[in-house]
């Protein structure tokens, strides 16, 4: 970057974020968090990370270290809807593994979710499916969060109903 080329709108916005956080405690984390929120698909593009490294002087490998450590950061575009299945002990005993499998069947991505722990976005970018270790809502197990709303005592039937609401495509029951 020789400084003469005009920066894209996204990179200009990132510059603003970097200026805001400069010198503050936990500078890099703050910058990365806001940079991700700026992005429509809720992820950190390589271009954005390059820019953050260039402007802050933090080594690229260090930036990569941070964004891969925290599960909050995404390196791939996220789906329009976010489904989070709790895989904590209480939810597990109440059958959360089966719920994850159900989601795989309903959305046709069973193979990708096979190992019981997941972070997957459907190819049409409609859904991102992820797991967490515990929501802290064990009394309501099993719980599934969809777009930030936590649903309790979820069964296959309720899952189907919930997902149907969002989906443009036909969901087989």
């Amino acid at each position: 970057m020789d400084g003469t080329e005009t920066l894209s709108k996204e990179l200009q916005e990132i510059d603003g974020v970097i200026t805001k956080h400069r010198g503050k405690h936990g500078e890099l984390l703050g910058i990365l968090e806001e940079t991700q929120l700026l992005n429509e698909a809720q992820f950190l593009s390589e271009e954005a990370l390059n820019h953050v490294a260039l402007r802050t002087g933090v080594p690229l490998s260090r930036v990569y270290n941070v964004v891969t450590f925290y599960s909050f950061f995404n390196l791939k575009p996220q789906g329009k809807h976010k489904i989070t299945v709790c895989r904590g002990t209480a939810c597990h005993t109440k059958g959360s593994k089966a719920l994850l499998e159900d989601i795989g069947l309903i959305l046709g991505c069973g193979k990708a979710l096979e190992d019981g722990e997941a972070f997957y976005t459907t190819p049409d970018n409609e859904y991102t499916i992820s797991t967490v270790a515990c929501f802290g809502q064990c009394a309501l197990a099993p719980v599934v969060a969809i777009d930030g709303v936590i649903h309790s005592n979820v069964t296959t039937a309720t899952l189907q109903k919930l997902l149907k609401k969002f989906s443009k495509r036909r969901i087989t029951s």
Binding site: E46, P59, S61, R62, Y64, N65, T68, F69, L75
Partner: peptide
């Protein structure tokens, strides 16, 4: 030089280059 760093966490932790 910082060509390498740890990446990911837990069982997936490894030594990585950028991306």
């Amino acid at each position: 030089v910082h060509a390498i760093s740890l990446s990911n966490r837990g069982i997936k932790t490894r030594v990585s280059t950028y991306m």
